[in-house]
């Protein structure tokens, strides 16, 4: 599936819920079921600045594909990171760099994220794209 196909799928999954409480409960479930990051990556080196809650994000690069693992001390944030990973993990650097992330808007979470919170979200996306950029220069060499 392409990045956009996965985004559409996620959007559909959230569309089932009318009530915001159910949406958040679903997000909490997603956060809970995300595999934990390897403890050795839960360090300041992998901490993303700009979030009210702590987020650790670790990339690995193999055969031209970037995979991410992540964690957060807040469950809702964990859910959001899990969704980002679902959409963006296992992709080439180019795919990630060119991705237009519209699903957050469509699942109705963006308007509920206050500026500091969405800064946290933006910080995560920015970090993911930065890793992609770094790995893309590696491929070119």
């Amino acid at each position: 599936m392409t990045i956009n196909e996965i985004q559409d799928q996620v959007t559909e999954e959230f569309a089932i819920f009318d009530d915001w409480l159910d949406k958040y409960n679903y997000l909490i479930d997603i956060g809970r079921s995300m595999p934990s990051i390897d403890i050795k990556y839960k360090t300041n080196d992998y901490l993303i600045e700009g979030c009210q809650s702590k987020v650790w994000l670790h990339p690995s690069f193999e055969n031209g594909i970037i995979s991410f693992s992540a964690d957060s001390d807040a469950i809702i944030t964990r859910g959001i990171v899990a969704l980002l990973i679902k959409v963006l993990s296992g992709r080439t650097p180019e795919e990630i760099m060119n991705a237009d992330l519209y699903f957050i808007d469509r699942i109705g979470l963006k308007q509920n994220l206050s500026p500091t919170r969405s800064n946290g979200l933006l910080a995560m996306v920015k970090q993911i794209k930065l890793y992609a950029l770094a790995f893309s220069t590696k491929t070119q060499k």
Partner: peptide, 20 residues
């Protein structure tokens, strides 16, 4: 419960608190 999670859900209930 993380204070951020709590604040986010309280906000949805119309309750404005500060977290952090």
């Amino acid at each position: 419960v993380h204070q951020y999670d709590a604040g986010m859900i309280l906000d949805k209930m119309g309750i404005a608190v500060r977290t952090g």
